[in-house]
C-alpha cells in the first residue's frame, strides 16, 4: 500500500501524454484531454463533446450563437480607450492598448451589437477576455451605456454576456465609476420595463460582478464558470486556508442563491429566447 493517495483526478498524466497537440486540425480538451476535430469542436459551440467543458470564446462567437443567421449590426465599433491617468507600469497604458488591438483585432474588452434572436430584435453587449483580461474601463462603460440608449430608443431587450477579471486598473477611479455608470443606465432600462438578462461566463469577477453582472432581471451562467467578487487567490490569502472544492463556481453561486439558472451553451439561445418572450408578452 502506498503512503499517499491521489484524491484529485487529472494529475496522473504521464509525460508522453502531456505533449501539446498542434494547433489547427485537432482540438484537445483542456479538462479531459479528449481530442476532436477543430471543425467539429466549433460545431459543438466550443464545448467538449466528451466532458462538456466550455472553452472560453469571444464576442464574435457569441453573436453567431445568438443572432439569427449570424446577422447583426455592431453598435459603436470604433470607440477606443483614452489614457485619463497617463498610466505607466511596466509599459505605457497607451502602448499596451495599441499592442492588444494589433494582436486581437478587437478595439476593447466589449462589443455591442443588435440583431434578432428567433425574430426578436435584441441588443447584446458581449465582453472579450482576450482584451486585457476582459477588464472594464471607460470604453466598456460607454459602450454599455450607448447600447442601453439604443435599447431604450428601439424598445428592445438588453443582454450582457460578462467575462472579465474586473475593473481595469490602468484607468484607476475612472474604471471604478463605470460600475456606477452602467448601473445607473440599467435603472433607466428597468423603468422602461425592458428586460435585461445577464449571462455570466468564465470568469466573471471583481467590479463586473459587483455591478451589471449581478443586476439582471435574470442572472444566467454557463456551467462551471468562475464567478465571484474577490478572486480566489485574494480570498485564500485573507482566510489563510485552502478554499473548499467547487468554491465560486456557477454551481456554488446558484446554490448560494445568486443565479436563476445554469444553462449550457448549446441551450442558451433557446432559453434566452423563451425568457424574452415571456417577459415581453404582456408589457407591450
Amino acid at each position: 500500500m502506498s503512503w499517499f493517495k491521489r484524491i484529485r483526478s487529472g494529475i496522473l498524466t504521464s509525460t508522453e501524454e502531456k505533449k501539446e497537440t498542434p494547433e489547427g486540425l485537432w482540438h484537445k480538451c483542456s479538462a479531459c484531454k479528449f481530442i476532436s476535430r477543430t471543425e467539429e469542436h466549433a460545431e459543438h459551440l466550443f464545448v467538449c463533446q466528451n466532458c462538456g467543458f466550455h472553452d472560453r470564446i469571444g464576442s464574435e462567437e457569441y453573436f453567431s450563437i445568438f443572432f439569427d443567421n449570424n446577422k447583426y449590426k455592431l453598435l459603436n465599433p470604433n470607440i477606443i480607450s483614452g489614457d485619463p491617468l497617463q498610466f505607466t507600469d511596466s509599459k505605457k497604458y497607451t502602448d499596451r492598448v495599441k499592442q492588444v488591438i494589433a494582436n486581437t483585432g478587437l478595439k476593447d474588452a466589449i462589443e455591442t451589437a443588435v440583431g434578432k434572436i428567433n425574430g426578436k430584435e435584441t441588443v447584446i453587449a458581449c465582453m472579450d477576455f482576450d482584451f486585457i483580461g476582459g477588464s472594464m474601463g471607460s470604453v466598456v462603460g460607454e459602450k454599455i451605456a450607448r447600447g442601453i440608449d439604443y435599447a431604450l430608443k428601439k424598445k428592445t431587450p438588453f443582454i450582457i454576456i460578462s467575462k472579465s477579471g474586473g475593473a481595469r486598473m490602468m484607468e484607476g477611479a475612472f474604471s471604478l465609476m463605470q460600475m456606477a455608470k452602467t448601473s445607473a443606465k440599467l435603472t433607466q432600462l428597468s423603468k422602461a420595463k425592458l428586460p435585461y438578462i445577464s449571462i455570466l461566463t468564465n470568469p466573471t469577477t471583481g467590479g463586473v460582478t459587483a455591478s451589471y453582472a449581478m443586476l439582471g432581471d435574470l442572472n444566467i451562467a454557463e456551467p462551471n464558470a468562475l464567478i465571484g467578487f474577490a478572486g480566489p487567490r485574494v480570498v485564500k490569502e485573507t482566510i489563510k486556508r485552502d478554499l473548499p472544492e467547487g468554491f465560486q463556481t456557477s454551481e456554488f453561486v446558484l446554490e448560494s442563491g445568486f443565479l436563476d439558472k445554469i444553462v449550457e451553451r448549446k441551450k442558451l439561445k433557446e432559453h434566452v429566447s423563451f425568457f424574452l418572450e415571456v417577459m415581453t408578452a404582456n408589457t407591450r
Binding site: 448601473s183 440599467l186 435603472t187 451589471y212 449581478m214 467578487f229 448560494s256
Partner: peptide, 22 residues
C-alpha cells in the same frame, strides 16, 4: 475594501454592492 472572505462570497458580496449602487 469590502471583506473578501468565504462567507462574504457565499452571501453574495458582489450582488450586495451591485444592488446598493443600483
Amino acid at each position: 475594501g469590502a471583506y473578501p472572505g468565504i462567507e462574504a462570497e457565499e452571501r453574495g458580496q458582489g450582488e450586495a454592492i451591485a444592488r446598493n449602487i443600483y
